[in-house]
Simulated scan of single mutants.
Amino acid sequence: MSTPDLKITSTIIPEELRLNVLPRYLGGHYLSGEMMVYDWAARLCPRYQGGYWNFFALSNGGFYMAPEGMERIHVRWHLNGYSDTMGADAFGITVTLFALCHLAEKTLDDAIIERFQQLREFATHHVEAANILRAID
């Protein structure tokens, strides 16, 4: 758990280290976790057609994935009435939070719950925090 006075930072994970990222953060759930991220991207943005995703490590021990090369993305979630646009980084955080929540419910794995909490903590300080938090509410 991070100290509230310290800013949580993100660092892009280099290409040569990507192979071990999801197993490190999601353990044995890494395959289903990755598929959930892409599934949630398609659910939240029907125009999403796939693409390359960057992986980010957080200074509090968390991580997230974000699509590369996308501009503003229209996100809609019918269960809470959210409909707005956000940048690719915020979209990645939002999608990863949805996927981690889904994976935590499915597995009841405390490590996955911790990953969700770490990312949510980071999201509260993101430049698009209001959009991210409204989308996941």
Rank of each mutant, 00 (worst) to 15 (best):
L6I: 06
L97H: 01
A66N: 05
P67R: 05
Q49V: 10
S2N: 11
P4H: 13
Y82T: 04
P46M: 05
W40P: 00
D110W: 05
N60L: 05
G62M: 06
H29Y: 10
G27Y: 12
L6V: 07
A99P: 00
F56M: 09
P23F: 13
W77H: 14
S83I: 01
M86V: 05
F56Y: 15
Y30V: 00
A42N: 08
S59Q: 04
R76Q: 14
M36S: 12
R134K: 15
L26G: 02
L100W: 06
L103Q: 12
A41H: 08
R76K: 14
L97T: 06
G81T: 04
M65Q: 11
A111K: 13
E105A: 10
E114Y: 05
I12P: 01
L79Q: 14
L119S: 09
M86L: 09
F98T: 09
T94V: 05
F116P: 04
T9P: 00
S59L: 06
D110T: 13
R18E: 08
I136M: 07
T107A: 13
T11W: 03
A111R: 13
N80A: 12
E15R: 15
V95P: 00
D84W: 00
L44T: 08
M1W: 11
H74K: 11
S32Q: 14
E15M: 03
S2G: 12
E105I: 02
M36K: 15
D39E: 03
S2D: 01
A111S: 09
D137N: 13
L108K: 15
L26Y: 11
F63C: 11
Q117R: 15
W40L: 09
M86K: 09
A135P: 00
A104S: 15
E71L: 08
A41I: 07
E34R: 11
D5R: 15
H102D: 14
A111H: 14
L44S: 10
R134Y: 04
F55I: 01
P4S: 10
I12K: 15
A66M: 06
L97K: 00
V95R: 12
I113Y: 03
G50Q: 04
L31K: 15
E71W: 04
A123P: 02
A135V: 01
Y64M: 10
P14E: 11
V21I: 05
F98H: 12
D137Q: 07
W53D: 05
L119E: 10
I12G: 13
C45Q: 13
Y25D: 00
H29G: 01
L58G: 07
D39G: 13
G81C: 08
A111T: 07
T9Q: 12
K7Y: 05
L17V: 02
L31V: 10
V37K: 10
H125A: 03
I136L: 05
R134P: 01
L100E: 04
M70A: 10
G51D: 06
H29I: 00
Q117V: 02
G27N: 08
